[in-house]
Simulated scan of single mutants.
Amino acid sequence: MLRRLYDWTMSLAGRKSAEIWLAVIAFVESSIFLVPADVLFLPMSLAKPERAWRYALTATVASVLGGIAGWALGYYAFEAIAKPILEFYGKLDAFNQMSAGVTYGWVLLLLVTSGLAHLPPIKVVTILSGVAHIDLGLFIVSAIVARGARFFFLAFLLRRYGESIRHFIEKRLGQIVMAAAAVLIALYGIFHFALAS
């Protein structure tokens, strides 16, 4: 199923309505969809590099709005809507583990790491933020910073290096950013544990 979703998302890049689809995918990725918007953003920006910044803005705005929708699902409709979505994607166990010892600072850190590196998946964290009643204003600012940094950094790389950087982005950049996100999470855990003891 994931492969079919990925292939379908990739096929949207060549359409005249690609920018609309980018906004749709970025929106639903942040609350209910499995395939990241990068899958559409990369080929679109390579095909029309002069529009890379515009695509980054579109993806950022739509992703933040989708994050707000995920927050609302967690805040207002966890049992009715959000929980079945998490079960469908096999993310409910991960969600339950994260929510067990949740703190305000922990959720904010996860917002940044998931926005930058999909670690953990953004939809899990947006829903968790609503369940944990994270302040919506702070949530929005965190989402803008994290998602904007990701899309605008990708736009910068694609504008500067073009097709030659695509393989690196698809194969290595995600691993590097995920490793950095994991270090941030580990440092937060060590810092939090040191304060508690």
Rank of each mutant, 00 (worst) to 15 (best):
Y55W: 05
V39Q: 05
A180V: 15
Y6S: 00
A132H: 11
S63E: 00
S142Q: 01
G101C: 08
L119Q: 01
L173Y: 10
G67C: 08
A23P: 12
M1Q: 13
F33M: 00
R15W: 11
V183Q: 01
I85A: 07
L195W: 14
A94L: 13
R3E: 15
M178T: 12
P121C: 00
F95K: 06
A182T: 11
L187S: 12
V102C: 01
R172E: 09
A196W: 15
A23N: 07
A77Y: 14
F139D: 00
G189S: 13
A100C: 04
A77V: 09
D93N: 14
A18F: 14
T60A: 00
R160W: 15
R3Q: 15
M178D: 00
Y76V: 03
L46V: 12
M98K: 00
F191W: 13
F78T: 05
E79F: 04
A69Q: 02
A179L: 15
A155Y: 04
T9D: 07
N96K: 14
L2W: 15
S197L: 12
I185N: 08
D93C: 09
V102I: 09
L34E: 08
F151K: 09
R166E: 12
L119G: 02
F152E: 00
S99W: 08
L12Q: 08
G74S: 02
M1K: 14
F88S: 10
T58I: 15
A180Y: 12
F191T: 13
A82D: 03
G66F: 13
H118D: 05
V141P: 03
E19Y: 14
K91Y: 15
T113S: 03
I134W: 06
M44W: 10
A146G: 04
A23F: 10
H118V: 08
T58N: 05
G148A: 00
F95L: 01
N96E: 06
P49N: 02
A56M: 08
D7K: 13
S197H: 15
T126I: 06
L184N: 04
L128T: 03
I85E: 05
D7L: 11
A37V: 06
L136T: 08
G90M: 09
S164T: 14
V102W: 04
L136Y: 11
E79I: 10
I68M: 12
V177P: 13
G90T: 09
